[in-house]
Design a protein around this nucleic acid. Sequence first.
DNA 1: TTAAGTGCAAAATCTTTGCAAATGT
DNA 2: ACATTTGCAAAGATTTTGCACTTAA
Lengths: 137, 137
Amino acid sequence: MDRSAHLLSEHGLKNTPVRRKVLSFMEERKHAVSHAELEGAFNGDADRVTLYRALNTLEEKGIVHKVLGRDGIARYALCQDDCTVHRHDDQHLHFHCNTCMNVFCLAVDDYPEVNLPAGFMLSKIQLSAEGICDNCK
Amino acid sequence: MDRSAHLLSEHGLKNTPVRRKVLSFMEERKHAVSHAELEGAFNGDADRVTLYRALNTLEEKGIVHKVLGRDGIARYALCQDDCTVHRHDDQHLHFHCNTCMNVFCLAVDDYPEVNLPAGFMLSKIQLSAEGICDNCK
DNA sequence: TTAAGTGCAAAATCTTTGCAAATGT
DNA sequence: ACATTTGCAAAGATTTTGCACTTAA
């Protein structure tokens, strides 16, 4: 059983061709993938709606996480192995390329201290950066 | 001449009632305002489209900056006085409230060091945090 | 006066919902 | 067998575009 199939059964999801292909597509990319990108990759082999539903389901189960690009379009990337439904997506930086608009999840060493005003309760800090990626430079 | 009128003329924009009201509405709020919120505030006194255009124009001129909420909806906040068209929006943290979905621009003291992989060029780091705001706690 | 801004209608995007048919376990 | 997943059609929501009318400078 490959990794995609394993992830699915592990979360009580049916091992369907669409979901397997969505997951393996993500595994092959360095960046978070958008719905439009997936639709192109499937090239008619899956309905637009099915892809939306697959992405939503995978996110709900904590298998992938969602990032909004600077263009406002949602993109999804595989979570790390140690992610859980309740706590995930914390320990990395989202790098937004201003040219291709792709979003990359990158490791980050240290987190800043943040002092919030009175009455604000912090649950999570996210780092995001923008610039030009590897591919577009 | 009030601050709104000043900001407009300073950037070569006409001092119209809609723009003045958009700006003073933002001045009164602690959080970034969405198009829907503005539309509610205008209550028919300005067309939906005019508000979209006003927000886009203000953003292009560097008078306000745009933040995407966790809900994917764009929100806008006044830039600090020292912002320019080419460099602005750097020195603060966007706090996303998970209850009301509002976004607050907060001051931040120190920025983290970020090491990017080879080939990535950094132009800007943004900090964002989520939790519960002042108002919703 | 006239370039810029506004309103209305219509279109373009992106995403969700309902329901019947197909599929995984 | 049966709950889940998929495909199709249709609707919703957000944002943009075109064009004639209005307004600030």
